[in-house]
Write a protein that binds this DNA or RNA. Structure first.
Lengths: 239, 239
DNA sequence: CATTGTGAAGCGTTTCACAGCC
DNA sequence: GGCTGTGAAACGCTTCACAATG
């Protein structure tokens, strides 16, 4: 039987998919859809239906057999589990290209986050406006974090400034860091860190781009038609 | 025994770590370090040493027992396997905040990619400069892609324009897409897609932030000292 | 009777532990 | 002696297949 509380730990893989289900469900709710099957949700989220059911079963059993899930209820469940009952204030360190773009990024609205401050080391930038925010000095980080009750920081500095930024964020009391700088950060165990390295993403893509022909032979035998074809294919010394 | 060619398929988990090893190794090379042990590389990359050895063994056996790996050789091996022997030209669709920031992002240099074009639907933007690039019309996408030999496209459009952008990229002959728009894209099987959804990253962080206390009880029993403590802890109805 | 919820099987990844080798 | 390379064990995630059920 499934758990009915919401205090438990979810499998990591499930946690990383819940945000996608949530986003898809929100879209459906906006379109007036009020029920959805695991199959339907799976299709929209780009995953397999059994996976959806297993994921959702970890939140407790809230579907109706023969019918499906109540979209609204599911949204509330997932929001609650992810800690999105209320918005999280977020602070950005680094007011360069990327930092400013993130500060103005509309994609956070309605998804649980609000950028409430942006700081930089450069005293020339301090005082400058970025959208509705004013760039603050990184020296006031501690005050800003406690005044605004911030627990999530985004690092958008150049690589060589990232370690310092992380250290300052941790010292200021931030407990979660989203790092865009291409460096491996070290942080105390009580601080969560996620890295988004754009070059890494592209490198993974380029690997697959380069090796795609092999994949297809393996994944879609119908494209190479027969064992014989596959052997010919290999004999060509492909790639 | 290990493979000695470089045509084989690597485990997906290995592929996603090679870029990190590569980055760390490049830094080491710059500092004049020419040998490194699996332990040393593991430390710098933030992973476990056995994992490093297994990952590298998939590239063939190129370490020296009792000594370690030759940094330079390893860099060449990984570069080659990831398809980074030469730079990849990259095109960005969407010249908004994020698109422009990505176009000016310095982090791609020396990591195998060069942004060679940026396009937008908005005719007011077309002709405007973004750094050393001029924004082109999305209608010339096909020509641009073939003239510049582009196979990787980045989608940095608003959500509602992303599906169209993807379709146009595919039609133009692009075979890999890095998507920053918060939508689930559908693409033919021969096209690789990776999604970077900033709100999703933050939501995963917020989940862990919210549930951290539980994790620590589970992961670091020494912090809660004893079974008795853990029971007390639970009895408090934490979270 | 369509659809959920879930044991159980299958797979890929991680980690261990040590033989093999320089 | 120190470090790699790798079988084998352990683990977590995915998928299957179907009993449970509104």
């Amino acid at each position: 039987m499934a758990r009915d509380d919401t205090t438990g730990q979810l499998p990591e893989a499930t946690v990383s998919r819940l945000p996608i289900y949530l986003h898809v469900l929100s879209t459906q709710a906006t379109n007036g859809i009020d029920r959805i099957s695991s199959e339907g949700l799976a299709e929209l989220a780009g995953v397999n239906a059994a996976k959806v059911r297993k994921d959702l079963s970890h939140l407790g059993s809230h579907g109706t057999r023969g019918v499906g899930y109540a979209v609204d209820h599911l949204i509330r469940q997932i929001r609650h589990e992810l800690g999105l009952d209320h918005d999280w204030p977020v602070l950005i360190v680094g007011a360069g290209n990327l930092g400013q773009a993130l500060a103005g990024y509309g994609g956070f609205d309605n998804r649980g986050f609000r950028v409430v401050a942006i700081v930089d080391v450069d005293s020339d930038k301090v005082g400058t406006r970025v959208g509705r925010l004013t760039i603050e000095s990184i020296d006031r980080l501690g005050e800003t974090v406690s005044e605004l009750g911030i627990s999530i920081g985004i690092i958008a500095t150049p690589p060589n400034a990232a370690a310092d930024a992380a250290e300052r964020l941790v010292a200021a009391g931030v407990t979660s860091i989203l790092n865009f700088a291409p460096v491996v950060l070290s942080a105390p165990r009580h601080v969560g860190v996620r890295n988004v390295d754009l070059a890494v993403e592209l490198q993974i893509l380029s690997y697959h781009d380069l090796h795609r022909i092999n994949h297809q032979a393996a994944i879609e035998p119908n494209l190479v038609a027969s064992d014989t074809d596959e052997i010919q294919f290999k004999a060509l010394g492909f790639r």
